[in-house]
């Protein structure tokens, strides 16, 4: 008996006994699922009631709780013959506007590209979901984020393998070829444009490349004698590209781990990038639009110009077809 209850039993209690029974059962079920026998025992031991409760009374109380919005599973084989309180309405509900605010906060945090921080925020949002009585809102908190399709067990393993430069056999669902098994030497995990990638050396295609983490379905370690040297050799042979950025791209520029600024000027910056993966670098340069000019090497500049002309050609081709 708590001291509060002791004080109240001493004086003449001005309470509703029925209400007390209902609240007591709610509290008991909130602690853990209970069988009828356990409920009867708890009622009998209660300092205020000091007597058991009939089966019918338990049914009536449960009915009142359900009517008020509690979701209570009935005792059966699947619940081990216990009443299970799954949800109750006695909480401040997360409303749509607060949910919208939380999502905006999370999007803002995701834009920094720190997946570890985003992962931690998601863990806290799992707790927040308890306040979402509307299942749609709970789903938004639990699912609407950039890491939603990531298998955290795989991610954790990959992070540890990256440090060790371990060779892996990866079951990968390629968008073009479907399911394939790749031998891959992982280098690092990156989070760009709200997508997680695993970078490393792909032994099948004999090049440094990246895999989308949500498409990695299984992995196991394998032995490849030159894992470290293959990765390092390919990295040291990679092409160096310089490009100039102006305008807002210059102001908002954040170097990737393959880039560093070599010249800084009030009007522009010159960046040197190591092209471990040419396709990826061309994509990045294109995304700066007319605020970027590729400077060297000339062969890469030609390739870049050709890429732009090829894009333009799609529209010209269509024009000719129409005319």
């Amino acid at each position: 008996m708590t001291s509060k209850q002791e004080q109240n039993t001493e004086c003449n209690l001005n309470i509703s006994k029925t209400g007390y029974r209902v609240l007591l059962l709610f509290k008991l079920l909130q602690e853990r699922p209970r069988s009828r026998a356990e409920i009867e025992e708890a009622f009998a031991k209660d300092a205020i009631l000091q007597k058991g409760v009939s089966h019918d009374s338990i049914t009536n109380i449960v009915r009142a709780l359900r009517k008020c919005g509690c979701v209570i599973k009935r005792p059966n084989i699947s619940t081990q013959y216990k009443y299970v309180l799954e949800k109750h309405p006695f909480t401040t509900e997360l409303n749509e506007k607060a949910l919208d605010g939380l999502q905006k906060l999370r999007d803002g945090i995701a834009s920094f590209g720190d997946w570890q921080l985003l992962y931690k925020v998601n863990k806290l949002y799992e707790v927040f979901a308890k306040f979402a009585l509307n299942p749609k809102f709970a789903r938004v908190l639990l699912r609407n984020h950039a890491l939603r399709n990531i298998d955290y067990k795989i991610l954790k393993k990959l992070v540890s393998y990256c440090g060790a430069k371990q060779t892996l056999r990866i079951k990968y669902i390629s968008p073009v070829l479907g399911s394939e098994t790749l031998t891959f030497i992982p280098d690092f995990v990156a989070f760009e444009n709200n997508i997680m990638y695993l970078w490393g050396y792909n032994l099948r295609y004999k090049s440094i490349g990246y895999l989308r983490l949500d498409r990695i379905k299984r992995l196991k370690t394998t032995f490849y004698v030159n894992a470290m040297s293959v990765l390092d050799l390919n990295k040291s042979n990679a092409l160096k590209v310089t490009y100039r950025l102006t305008g807002f791209s210059k102001l908002a520029f954040e170097p990737t781990r393959f880039e560093h600024v070599v010249i800084e000027n009030p009007n522009f910056i010159v960046v040197e990038a190591t092209a471990y993966n040419k396709f990826n670098l061309i994509q990045r340069l294109l995304s700066f639009g007319a605020e970027c000019k590729v400077l060297t090497p000339s062969q890469f500049v030609e390739e870049y110009i050709m890429e732009l002309k090829n894009i333009r050609e799609i529209y010209r081709h269509e024009k000719q077809k129409n005319s």
């Binding site: 209400g19 209902v22 009536n60």
Partner: peptide, 12 residues
């Protein structure tokens, strides 16, 4: 039986 603990419901 559709009986409900009415005063309990009010408190809830």
């Amino acid at each position: 039986n559709k009986k409900i603990a009415d005063s309990g419901l009010r408190i809830l």
